Simulated assay, not measured.
Amino acid sequence: MATNARYIMAYEHTAKPDWWDKSQSCGPIVEQATHLCDLSRYFGGEVDESTVLAHSLEHFEPAGKLSKMPIDESKIPPEQRIPRITCANWKYESGAVGSLTHAVSLQGFNYSAELDVLADGYSLRLVDPYNAPALYFRRPGDDHEEVVRYQNDDPFFSEVANLIDCIEKGPGAAPILSSYDDAVKTYSLTWSIRNASEKSAKKPVSD
């Protein structure tokens, strides 16, 4: 029935200027939120990209001022500076609804990432998939929320290990779980979100 993804970045120590420059990194939705867009598609199905709507909080708006910027953003052309917040929603071909919030707002080191999946009788909430994954869920006819914690789960290690197994052991030894065709659909969704947010974004007032 619905997916709701949230990716809240800790920006204080991200001192790579390229990441803050859309002409270099393509922006946080394409470069960073792609993983949650991919998970959203995995659970929600194909997206009707004509329905994608998005709004952004831009660097020049009062609410977009960051107090612990790790780079000199004045060296990046204003039109290439990344948004601080992007909120998007869309319809899946099934009729279900999807949404995404990406934020550049936390300080320190730890990011916050969650994905909700809602279905008839079910509520699934995946929390902190990058560090200490936990799945909170309710079943049909039950008010009790259960939780499953996945110990020693390192998604980056698993991803790289699977790729190495494919190279070393040959085709079929370790299946690649996403085809290029499917990956391109996620890439297309991220660009639809970025384009929609830029279309609706406020423009800076000239001095």
Rank of each mutant, 00 (worst) to 15 (best):
E61S: 01
G45E: 06
R194Q: 06
M69G: 01
I29E: 02
E61A: 04
N131H: 15
S23L: 11
L163V: 10
V97G: 07
G95A: 11
D153T: 15
T190P: 09
A183C: 05
F157V: 14
D207C: 15
S197C: 08
Q107Y: 15
P129Y: 08
P140S: 08
H144M: 12
Y187I: 15
D48L: 02
D72K: 11
P155V: 12
Y136E: 08
A183T: 06
D165E: 07
H102N: 06
A5L: 08
W19L: 05
T3A: 12
I76N: 02
Y187L: 15
G95V: 00
S50L: 08
D154Y: 08
R6T: 04
Y111V: 00
S192A: 10
S206E: 07
D182S: 14
K75L: 11
A33V: 00
A88E: 08
V30C: 01
I167D: 13
G64R: 09
I85Y: 06
T101C: 03
H55L: 09
H102A: 07
N152V: 11
Y187G: 13
A63Q: 07
D116K: 02
P155D: 11
H13L: 11
H102C: 05
G170L: 01
S188P: 11
D154T: 14
Y187A: 15
P175K: 13
R194D: 02
E198F: 13
N162W: 02
S56K: 05
S74P: 03
P204I: 09
K203Q: 13
L36P: 06
I71T: 11
T186Q: 02
M1H: 12
L124W: 11
I76T: 07
K169Q: 15
V104Y: 00
T51N: 07
K91R: 10
N131T: 15
R81Y: 12
D207R: 03
S178W: 12
P133N: 00
A54V: 09
I76M: 02
K199Q: 13
C37G: 04
W20I: 07
N4A: 13
K185I: 08
S23W: 01
D18N: 01
A5F: 02
M1I: 14
L189G: 01
L53H: 03
Q32P: 08
A15N: 15
Y92I: 01
S200W: 08
F137I: 14
I193M: 04
S50G: 14
H102S: 10
I76Q: 09
K169N: 14
L124K: 05
H59L: 03
V148F: 03
A113G: 11
L106R: 10
K68D: 03
P70Q: 13
A103Y: 00
S192F: 07
T14V: 06
S179N: 11
L106F: 14
F60G: 03
D142R: 14
L177T: 13
S188A: 06
T14H: 11
G45Y: 03
Q107R: 02
G95Q: 04
S94V: 07
P78Q: 12
Y122L: 04
V30S: 01
T190H: 10
S40F: 08
S178Q: 12
P204D: 10
T34R: 12
A132R: 15
D120Q: 04
R84V: 03
D18P: 09
P70I: 07
E79T: 05
A173C: 10
V117P: 00
A173Y: 02
V127H: 06
L106K: 12
S67N: 12
S200H: 10
A96E: 05
S40L: 14
P78A: 04
E93V: 12
E58S: 07
E31W: 00
D182P: 06
D116F: 05
